[in-house]
Design a protein around this nucleic acid. Sequence first.
DNA 1: CGCGGAAACTTGTCTGAACAAGTGCCGCGA
DNA 2: TCGCGGCACTTGTTCAGACAAGTTTCCGCG
Lengths: 252, 252
Amino acid sequence: MVKSVTPPLHHRVADELRGRISRGQLPVGAPLPSEAQLCEEFGASRGTVRQALAALRNEGLIGGGQGKPPVVRQAAVAQPFETFLSFTRWAREMGREPGQRTVEIARRGASQVAADALGLDEGTPVIEVLRLRLLDGIPTMLERSSFVERVGRLLFDFDPDAGSIYAHLQDCGVDLRAARHTIDAIGANEVDADLLTIAPGAPLLRERRRATDATGARVEYGDDRYRPDLVTFTIDNVQTGRVSPHILKETS
Amino acid sequence: MVKSVTPPLHHRVADELRGRISRGQLPVGAPLPSEAQLCEEFGASRGTVRQALAALRNEGLIGGGQGKPPVVRQAAVAQPFETFLSFTRWAREMGREPGQRTVEIARRGASQVAADALGLDEGTPVIEVLRLRLLDGIPTMLERSSFVERVGRLLFDFDPDAGSIYAHLQDCGVDLRAARHTIDAIGANEVDADLLTIAPGAPLLRERRRATDATGARVEYGDDRYRPDLVTFTIDNVQTGRVSPHILKETS
DNA sequence: CGCGGAAACTTGTCTGAACAAGTGCCGCGA
DNA sequence: TCGCGGCACTTGTTCAGACAAGTTTCCGCG
């Protein structure tokens, strides 16, 4: 039984506007309808409409100043967040062909490290996924994920070789909101070396990830190991101005 | 004549709360005062307080769900730009004692890699600096920098063991403005291993840097190699919101 | 003592209103 | 014709109130 409630009005307004922008109905640079017009169109009060506009502003979709109607800024924003979350999407954006092979998916007691990162007791059941990621057929990254049971459960009725785990979770109503990534280097162990077709002990670029949902509850602990000759991380910094540092993964 | 207007109330509320969080007055995990309490404290209406809380929420500073008071998610963070630029300042902010030993400072023809990064011809004179950086006396990072001659020249009337090269350049009117950092992993070579007191071939976390001044001219190419057991990079991502991801270096 | 449920409390959503502040345009006057 | 003032329109800020929905607390009943 799916609980099917109509989403809040300000969400519907925001979604509708997002849709018009992404459909090109509101082209880049075009001014949005005034708040008063939106109020009338959606039968909402101004506060509600402003709430929707604030959301779009946050996403960088619209900009504009006082006295002037808001203006469409850009159609598709590649959130840096996605960069780390969806290997599939990232690869395609780079013009490479993503591939993957699920080595293992299992329900077992959390390891010391994973339990610690998820705030669980060691041995609490979690769902572990071990996937080998390919770029144009070349083994590129090894992904070890531990999901808390509440979320990982959703993965058993899903073919992990089909596509993005995150996209599937999103569809199931899990909304990954924030993540903390820790980047370091580590030597390849026997398993790493075997799957990534490199020598044991070879340096790997490691990204460990702790993802949380909207409530701040920890949902996933991940350990991704990249071949540093194939993937690097890039950060752009600007001292003055308010350009946000951009994080990119790049292939070489 | 400075136009001194009092900022909007919801900004003042948000700033005050941000301050309490970064001062540790509201520790991580602690619940914020309820909206009603904040209304009374600031003499604001609930709408205004909610506007302030919404700002903090999409900065990722607070989280929480309906029915529960919002919870402090993470403390405020340092300026990401400085993080990569000044080892000295970063170390002190971490409460560690920075140290350094200048292994070499020389004027010589640029290597292939450095020339490429600086947009020079191979063999064009550059100033190269090789410094070993210490944390609490422990060799932690090996820094190889190549400065274009115009800037590097300023380094000869400066004691590189005294403190920050960047601070000195800033004093000399060189205005480092932007940088692109590329992060990967690499095995330690003989020199690295010797200076960092690790085994040859051990994995190192490498950050390569291309810094430009205000005019966009390339000024420095750097290759920093960190012991991954001592230093990691951390990136915080929040999905909604236009908030810049924060990049941190952390010691372990 | 334990458990269920009601009550109190908290945040989420929405409305309607008012004033301030910034922008753009139109028309009047020089 | 040109310039400038003012008006109409827009967004920004703030308030007060109402109901919905989720959480916590606590009391009374078994």
